[in-house]
Design a protein around this nucleic acid. Structure first.
Lengths: 223, 223
DNA sequence: AAGTGGTCTAGACCACCAT
DNA sequence: TGGTGGTCTAGACCACTTA
């Protein structure tokens, strides 16, 4: 179904499939949990769209030291076709040497460069993607994936480390070489946990932090 | 109710409070989501206990570079009574200068020191806590909080940064001064999001990483 | 076999939103 | 006012555990 469109009402679905409304509700509940649908009381249930609010809520975890969250200003630094190196082929589940696109962005917060993103996506999933479309997109990158290529990013796995700024990162983030940075390696997943995008972010955490609210996880182990 | 004990069955609760079983179920579902109860089909529903599996699942996010999770070997380095400094008083919501305990642990993975924990707890919440009880606890720290002081840690907020090893951290973690470390500042919360414990962890991420699965968050914003 | 949680039914009523 | 999702009822039946 198309992102943004409404799905049939709970009563109609229950009639169509011969199950009770309560069962339909629980099925929809699960799809909402998986970020596929969004309910709106009194209006209907809609296929989720990757707008900016949604991206900020689900996929952007950098906050100021005072806890405030700010929308970053993105500037593209490069956009190049390449062949997948071993790490990329493993992370994206594509053959070694498969065509990919590598892009680099710098994200500014409060007017200062804070995040240096290195993005890799498989060209096979994004046929015809151009540098202009990538750079001049009107919305978020994930919105572009969804609207132009029908690929919806549902969740992401992130692995964080502490690293030192090399010359390149130091130049982009305007810190000295050897300054401490936070490294975030993210794999973005779509349906069936199929990998869509590999992203390495280097974050200058002198004025910002990565915020993690591990409130609710999966099933607790047995007692 | 006591941790580990069973709560009345759904049918009994529905009769006692004059509501339907379905309503009882949803209420219990919420408490399970909040990590307060654990269901076991065919056996009953139990008040959650902070055992080691549970701690590892909900509160320990350091994994090897290959993704394997290993139980750390904890060694206490120090345990001292002190007065809350401004950061501690703010983070724990206690008056400045209020009595606290500061403890330091080093956690080893694969025989190597990897995590240097600096823990602060308010003495008022843990009356009579001794160094021996803290060091020689048979289970996890959060299990001790729960069984000896009736304080159940339900969730935690973590803020991550990249930092450089100072002389103290370098000595504890056996890295050189200036080596990159991952800093994790955690506040552990109990009922009503009341803060229980402040913890600063310095992690040597040369062989390990912080793993974050942001699968399911709260409510998505409006479309 | 008896008791538990897990799933489902076929409704009722409420709160919210659009017209 | 009519349609939507949100909550709740009073059961039925199944899967699992324990004795």
């Amino acid at each position: 179904m198309k992102p943004g469109s409404a799905i049939p009402s709970e009563r109609e679905l229950s009639a169509r499939f011969g199950v009770s409304v309560g069962t339909v509700r629980r099925a929809i509940d699960e799809l909402c949990d998986d970020n596929l649908l969004v309910r709106q009381q009194g209006r209907g249930t809609f296929v989720a769209v990757h707008n900016r609010d949604r991206m900020m809520f689900h996929f952007f975890h950098i906050v100021g030291r005072d806890g405030t969250k700010e929308t970053p200003v993105v500037k593209m630094l490069s956009f190049r076709a390449a062949r997948a190196d071993p790490r990329e082929s493993q992370g994206l589940a594509i053959p070694p040497g498969a065509p990919v696109v590598r892009a680099r962005n710098v994200l500014a917060l409060g007017g200062r460069p804070v995040i240096y993103d290195q993005i890799t996506i498989p060209r096979a999933m994004f046929p015809g993607l151009t540098m202009r479309a990538f750079r001049d997109r009107p919305n978020t990158i994930y919105h572009l994936y969804q609207t132009a290529f029908g690929i919806t990013v549902l969740r992401s796995l992130e692995r964080l480390s502490g690293v030192l700024a090399d010359a390149e990162a130091a130049s982009v983030l305007q810190v000295r070489v050897g300054a401490p940075l936070l490294e975030i390696k993210r794999v973005a997943l779509t349906f069936n946990d199929a990998p869509v995008e590999l992203r390495r972010s280097l974050v200058d955490t002198s004025r910002h932090e990565y915020f993690s609210d591990l409130a609710k996880s999966g099933q607790p182990p047995a007692a």
